[in-house]
Amino acid sequence: MGRRAGAPEVNAGSMADIAFLLLIFFLVTTTIETDAGLDRMLPPIEPPETDVIIKEKNIFQVSINKNGQLLADDELTDLKALRAKAIAFLENNGDGSCSYCKGKKDPKSSDNPTKAIISLKNDRETKYSTYITVQNELVAAYNELRNRESMRLFNRKFTDLEAEYLNPETSPELKEELKEKVKRIQDLFPQKLSEAETSSN
């Protein structure tokens, strides 16, 4: 066959090899991950100027010792029972001012959710995994109550609302609307989880 007019075709047979090489490079360096975890606010280092007097019954004291045992409100508690206990404390509604609470109105427990504080204390030798589990249970207690109220008011879970609100792909108008809802639920059960300084022994 005679030579035709026009440039000869470039041999593209090695293109696959080159592409493979790049592919393997990116495969190796890739880490597909979106980090997730428990969000917490640490207390500021300067103590607040006005000393607030908190009644002891409004504090739910959780202590973890170095063996991973749990003391909740002066009772040895199993980790699995912590969530229910925290919920009972948060919505106890001792002074009857909380219309949406379903607590037992025990006068020895918290007055209302806005006053209820959970204090978490740990030993220096407590394992991190135990600490995270306890944190998780306490956050779960708040989330469970908030979800319940959110379902009643907006017919959607609070955790879903919040996730959508925090998602950067949500449009600004929707965000504004969600912000109000999220704020409203948060005000019903404000998260007051204090992390006291670690005890040294």
């Binding site: 997730a36 975890g37 606010m41 640490l42 500021p44 991973g68 995994s129 995270i132 589990t133 944190q135």
Partner: peptide, 19 residues
Amino acid sequence: VNALKVNYTTGKGDAFSNI
């Protein structure tokens, strides 16, 4: 240093499996 916002980064799963 007033870096108060922290995130204890964890995996997703049943928390009791930690213990």
